[in-house]
Structure formats: C-alpha cells, structure tokens
Amino acid sequence: MIKLKAQDAGLSIAEFTRRSVLLKPLPRRLSKITLATYRELVRIGNNINQLTRATNAAIKMGVQPPAYPYQLAELRNLLQEIGRELSSIETEVTDDDDIDDEDKEEWE
C-alpha cells in the first residue's frame, strides 16, 4: 500500500515515508490545462523581458522605444497577479483531465 501511494505521489518510498512521518505535504498533481497555462505565462514573461530590454536600450540611445515603461510595468504586474491566482487554486487531477501516461510524471 505504501509503495502504491508513493508511486501515485511521484515520490520514492523513502521520500514518501519522510514526508508522511514529518507531516510534510505531498506535491500536488497539476492538470494538463494548468501546466499549459504556466508554460504560456513563462513564454509571455520572456517576451516582456525582451521588450523591456529593447525599450531600455532605445531610451538610452534617445530613440522612440517600442513600448512605454509604465505599460511594461503594468503587464508585469498583471502576469504576477495571474501567477498568484493560479498558484492559489487547488488543482487536483480528475478523470476529466485526460492525463496521458507521459503527463503522470509532471508534478509541482
């Protein structure tokens, strides 16, 4: 029974036992939708970082920036807020999540 619970949690038997004995929480499984959302937020964040660098370089050179710094700050704040909201959602994998075998290894 312990071996099955450890496998289901994506942990070794030793790590599962340690967490259980020390009353540490087990990692939460993330649904495909949540994982895809996190990945897309990372891509958007990378694009905003590139745009910020280009904007800062343009300002230093005295040319029209591709974006205004206050707009970039607003975008960054929105992304951070979305990330916080996503992390506060208790995501449990259900049969409706259509998890493939390869996705079973993805843990928070």
Results as ranks from 00 to 15, higher is better:
residue 1 M to R: 10
residue 1 M to I: 01
residue 2 I to R: 13
residue 2 I to Q: 12
residue 3 K to C: 07
residue 5 K to E: 09
residue 8 D to L: 03
residue 8 D to M: 03
residue 9 A to Q: 01
residue 9 A to L: 06
residue 9 A to H: 02
residue 10 G to C: 01
residue 10 G to I: 05
residue 11 L to N: 04
residue 12 S to T: 05
residue 13 I to C: 02
residue 14 A to E: 15
residue 14 A to L: 09
residue 14 A to C: 02
residue 16 F to W: 14
residue 16 F to G: 00
residue 19 R to C: 05
residue 20 S to D: 08
residue 20 S to F: 02
residue 23 L to A: 09
residue 23 L to D: 10
residue 28 R to K: 10
residue 28 R to S: 14
residue 29 R to K: 09
residue 29 R to T: 07
residue 30 L to H: 11
residue 32 K to L: 15
residue 34 T to K: 12
residue 35 L to I: 12
residue 36 A to Y: 02
residue 36 A to W: 04
residue 36 A to E: 14
residue 36 A to H: 06
residue 37 T to A: 09
residue 38 Y to M: 13
residue 38 Y to E: 15
residue 39 R to S: 13
residue 40 E to M: 13
residue 41 L to M: 11
residue 41 L to Q: 09
residue 42 V to Y: 07
residue 42 V to P: 00
residue 43 R to V: 14
residue 43 R to D: 15
residue 43 R to W: 10
residue 44 I to V: 12
residue 46 N to V: 11
residue 46 N to D: 05
residue 47 N to L: 14
residue 49 N to F: 06
residue 49 N to R: 14
residue 49 N to I: 08
residue 50 Q to C: 03
residue 50 Q to I: 10
residue 52 T to L: 13
residue 53 R to I: 12
residue 54 A to D: 07
residue 54 A to W: 05
residue 55 T to P: 02
residue 56 N to E: 15
residue 58 A to L: 06
residue 58 A to D: 04
residue 58 A to P: 05
residue 58 A to H: 08
residue 59 I to A: 08
residue 59 I to D: 10
residue 60 K to M: 13
residue 60 K to N: 13
residue 61 M to D: 15
residue 62 G to P: 03
residue 63 V to C: 06
residue 64 Q to F: 12
residue 64 Q to R: 11
residue 64 Q to E: 12
residue 64 Q to T: 15
residue 64 Q to I: 13
residue 65 P to R: 11
residue 66 P to M: 08
residue 67 A to M: 11
residue 67 A to C: 07
residue 67 A to P: 06
residue 69 P to K: 10
residue 70 Y to C: 01
residue 71 Q to N: 14
residue 71 Q to D: 11
residue 71 Q to H: 12
residue 73 A to H: 10
residue 74 E to V: 04
residue 74 E to G: 06
residue 75 L to Y: 11
residue 75 L to D: 07
residue 76 R to I: 00
residue 76 R to D: 10
residue 77 N to C: 01
residue 77 N to T: 03
residue 78 L to R: 10
residue 78 L to N: 11
residue 79 L to W: 00
residue 79 L to V: 02
residue 82 I to E: 03
residue 82 I to V: 14
residue 83 G to A: 10
residue 84 R to S: 06
residue 85 E to Y: 08
residue 85 E to M: 03
residue 86 L to E: 01
residue 86 L to Y: 00
residue 86 L to S: 01
residue 87 S to L: 09
residue 87 S to V: 06
residue 88 S to E: 13
residue 91 T to A: 05
residue 92 E to K: 13
residue 92 E to T: 04
residue 93 V to D: 08
residue 94 T to C: 01
residue 95 D to M: 05
residue 95 D to Q: 09
residue 96 D to I: 02
residue 98 D to V: 04
residue 98 D to M: 06
residue 100 D to Y: 07
residue 100 D to A: 14
residue 100 D to Q: 14
residue 101 D to N: 06
residue 102 E to Q: 07
residue 102 E to V: 15
residue 104 K to G: 05
residue 106 E to S: 05
residue 107 W to F: 14
residue 108 E to W: 04
